[in-house]
Amino acid sequence: MAPVSTRAFSIPRPASSSLGINATLQRLAWLVGSLLVFAILWQIIAEFLQNRYLPTPVAVFDVLMREARNGELWKHTSATLLRVFFAFVISMFIGTAIGLVLGRYKTADRFFDAWLILFLNLPALVTITLCYIWFGLTDAAAVTAVALNKIPNVAVNMREGARSLSKDLSEMAIVYKFGWWKTLRHVTIPQLAPFSAAAARSGLALVWKIVLVVEAFGRSNGVGYKLTIAFQEFDVTTILAYALAFILIVQFIEFTILQPLQARVSAWRR
């Protein structure tokens, strides 16, 4: 009997790159369509009410373009983004380290669990006020205040990730003599990556909101500072223009970096 070729039973693999592009385009279409409907509803309501405290999207866009042309928009958004970046990196690094220790060592987890709950429930306004009193009205104080508010959230996420590490995979790595670096790269990090990505996504949304409060409280630049000035002048159009600009920036980071990253690090579970 002639041997049967295994090619007859091979399953064709989908083109992963084309599937990824199609998924991205589909997400983009839904995003654009949803925002377009929101803008139309906003325009209709604003035109109907004719209230100076509810400007139309067209008026907000005009202010946005004006601020972009005179350089104010880039000046304040760049200052805010820089604070967001440093606070985000510091909180992810420290929070991850704390979470891994608490997840792997039960004694440490039992002892420091009360501390974690305390800082999780500490209002951001208290942390911001204390940091400004202790360290002065500086960028270092602002970044520290934001990081302190985010670290407990990262620690909780990474603690759950450390608890869920597979003992079977760890034992397999020992049996096959992977070594610490190969074990870390091919066994530990892939299991922790989904938890880290989730912490990053939720962290970005939390960090930039707190940064705006920090800037409103004690900085002389940034989106939060600009919103405070607009509030004092009851300038709702400028408030909405700066809010819209920063929302678009954060959504761009979420859509182009964080969502694809989370999908990539979670692919091995399928």
Rank of each mutant, 00 (worst) to 15 (best):
A87V: 07
L116N: 08
V60W: 01
F111H: 07
L82T: 12
I98P: 05
A79C: 04
F111M: 11
L54Q: 05
F48L: 10
K106E: 12
S78A: 15
R83K: 13
D109T: 09
V89M: 14
F85E: 04
S91T: 02
F61R: 07
I117Y: 14
I94A: 10
T56H: 06
R110F: 15
F61L: 14
F48N: 11
R104D: 11
A87S: 15
F112P: 00
L64R: 02
L49M: 09
A59D: 05
F93N: 01
A87D: 09
A87Q: 08
V89C: 13
D113F: 14
G71Y: 00
E67D: 14
I98C: 01
E47C: 12
R83F: 07
F111T: 12
I98D: 03
V60R: 01
D113H: 14
G99N: 05
L54C: 03
R110L: 15
Q50E: 02
L120R: 14
E47F: 14
A46D: 09
K106T: 10
L100R: 05
K106S: 12
K106Q: 12
G99P: 08
L118N: 09
F61G: 10
M65K: 08
L120K: 14
F85L: 13
S78Q: 12
F111Q: 07
P57M: 00
K106C: 05
I44A: 15
K75Q: 15
W74R: 02
L54K: 06
V89Q: 12
